[in-house]
Nucleic acid binder design. Structure first.
Lengths: 342, 342
DNA sequence: GGGCTGTGCGGGAGCGCTCTCACGGTGCAC
DNA sequence: GTGCACCGTGAGAGCGCTCCCGCACAGCCC
């Protein structure tokens, strides 16, 4: 009443019902595509809706259905740099596309710090969303607990740290990394370094584990001075490469745990006068678009994103529909893509 | 009732009221921090809330208040590459930070195509959000119309194409570009090219206009063959630079309408054997983090992001609060940042 | 023709919350 | 002592929707 003047008061079901000469219930049936409506009633309602430009009020609907038809993709990343990681962009795009021809909405939520994480937790608990896809989980992340406790359906993109009962979709990071380093070994490299991801992220940990496993399997030793921690950014990759070269100028190969970091490493190697792949072979991880564009094009481990994103939404939807089924998880295979850098 | 078993039925205001021995209204007052509650009642309610782990149902609240306390940041971009533009990341981070100590929530909505834009339009009209900040508007974008018509408070990041009555915050793109090219002229450059942004975006159009204005003001001629359209991405910048060099190998300066494109241009120039700034001077636009990291560091036009993001939210909030005040807009000053590239 | 099933439709309760209004109680001025 | 303002509180209406239930009517079988 008070703000009739400021905003066009949107018409309600009742008004549509009056105009169409039917009851509220019938309008509701038409709006929700119920089959038990006569063609005449349906037509009358349709034209009334068009005339009044009726748009259902989702809050009112949600209040009774306990559904909001929106799911949240939570991007949990303090480092803005990482926010522009092509991997994220791909996931967002993929999930969005998967949802495009459903009537589900997708919202992105970002958290830079603990305070914002708490805010997101509250947002989810208050019933704004039907479920959550959680990306970029760090080891000290409170969100999985908050959401699990609140009973919000949840799928994590990436294996959780502890082996908790939560649904997740992940690439076979360990296997991929193992294949990468095995490839370097098979092509005759001797001093194989690695630039890891952040070790408070499971992808960082698993890729390092895979790298070490490949060395061990080949009877090589694991040298701590040939391991440098990166942060999945290009700058971080360059810094890590410099530090590695300083520690062992004789290294002849490096497995880099993400393509953006590998691009940074390529730059650092060039700056240090090393030729790739002649002097130093480089293998990346992700098979991001940048891997084909850089010089030389990057040999890398492909993540099956086209499998992962539909799976992510599928597992979440199943959890939303399902009546307390146990959370299901999936690990997707990775594959070596050979280009010029190794 | 039906899903008592599947999800923990969250407690309602009534249950809290019963436990605290007060009425629903009093609980509501406590929850909403109304001052007119006795300390005893407040304490009783607080402890009942804690005991029951009560979380207010936002849908029910929104139904009566007509407020959702969430605003949407719409990222309207078909090109995934652009999605990872540092400029976007900065805006998202800035708006998010501005909102951090309010009780407003921020959701990001992305649209890759017209279908998704319509979906976002529907989402906003259905009352999910109190207002919208619209980024990356292209000339044929339906969203401003959809939202304006629905009466959803709206602030655009960037001037609208037609001079419609919509609030916006923009950098002085024209002035910035003019300063950039004026700087190239002042430092003795003769054949000054430009790599423009997409010309279906106002930032692209305005920066080109500023560039041309500077040439004209200095009595120079505008040469169409010295203008190449980019897409605000690094790859696009590199391609445009190559095409420019092919058209006029003698060019000695280039104003590039965004830093990521300028980085691409730098790469193309290096590949073509040109030294920067000796052979070709380069000025970028944005003053993104990458401008300080590239080789050579980029002379560029700084956008006052620290001014723009608070302004964006401020204008939107004023519109949400305000009773039909005319939409206000702001243009923020840009400044030349001199580094090594020009 | 009586009983039955099925179909289209409307009445009405109720989702969880806010907010207006009215009420009793207290404190103060006259 | 009366009048008045004011404060804390509760009852109740209602936000716009869904969905259960029951009614009227048609069509069918025996």
């Amino acid at each position: 009443m008070t703000d009739m003047s400021t905003r066009p008061a949107s018409p309600t079901l009742d008004e549509v019902a009056v105009l169409a000469g039917v009851s509220r219930a019938t309008v509701s049936r038409v709006v929700n595509d119920s089959p038990r409506v006569s063609p005449e009633a349906r037509a009358a309602v349709r034209s009334a809706i068009a005339e009044l430009r009726y748009v259902p009020n989702r809050m009112a609907r949600s209040l009774v259905t306990r559904r909001t038809d929106t799911i949240a993709l939570v991007l949990n990343e303090p480092n803005t740099q990482v926010f522009s990681d092509p991997f994220f962009a791909s996931i967002v795009r993929g999930v969005s596309a998967t949802l495009a021809d459903t009537d589900l909405n997708l919202v992105l939520l970002t958290a830079q710090d603990e305070r914002e994480q708490q805010k997101i937790g509250r947002y989810a608990r208050q019933g704004h969303v039907d479920g959550v896809i959680l990306m970029s989980v760090h080891s000290n992340d409170p969100l999985p607990d908050i959401l699990a406790e609140a009973g919000v359906p949840l799928v994590m993109c990436g294996r959780p740290f502890d082996d908790r009962a939560v649904a997740y979709v992940d690439a076979d990071n360990r296997g991929g990394a193992e294949a990468a380093t095995a490839h370097l070994i098979a092509t005759g490299r001797n001093r194989i370094a690695t630039i890891t991801g952040p070790l408070d992220m499971i992808a960082g940990v698993d890729r390092l584990a895979g790298h070490r496993a490949a060395l061990t399997a080949a009877g090589r030793q694991v040298h701590p001075e040939l391991e440098a921690e990166g942060d999945f950014t290009e700058v971080g990759g360059a810094r890590a490469m410099e530090s590695l070269l300083a520690r062992d100028p004789e290294l002849d190969a490096v497995f880099v745990a993400s393509d953006p970091m590998a691009v940074g490493a390529l730059g650092a190697l060039r700056a240090a006068g090393r030729r790739v792949p002649q002097d130093v072979a480089v293998v990346g991880f992700d098979d991001a678009a940048v891997a084909t564009r850089c010089d030389p094009p990057l040999t890398t481990i492909a993540q099956p994103l086209t499998d992962m994103t539909p799976l992510l939404t599928e597992l979440l939807l199943r959890q939303i529909e399902g009546v307390g089924e146990p959370a299901e998880s999936r690990v997707c295979h990775t594959s070596l893509v050979r280009r010029a850098s190794a």
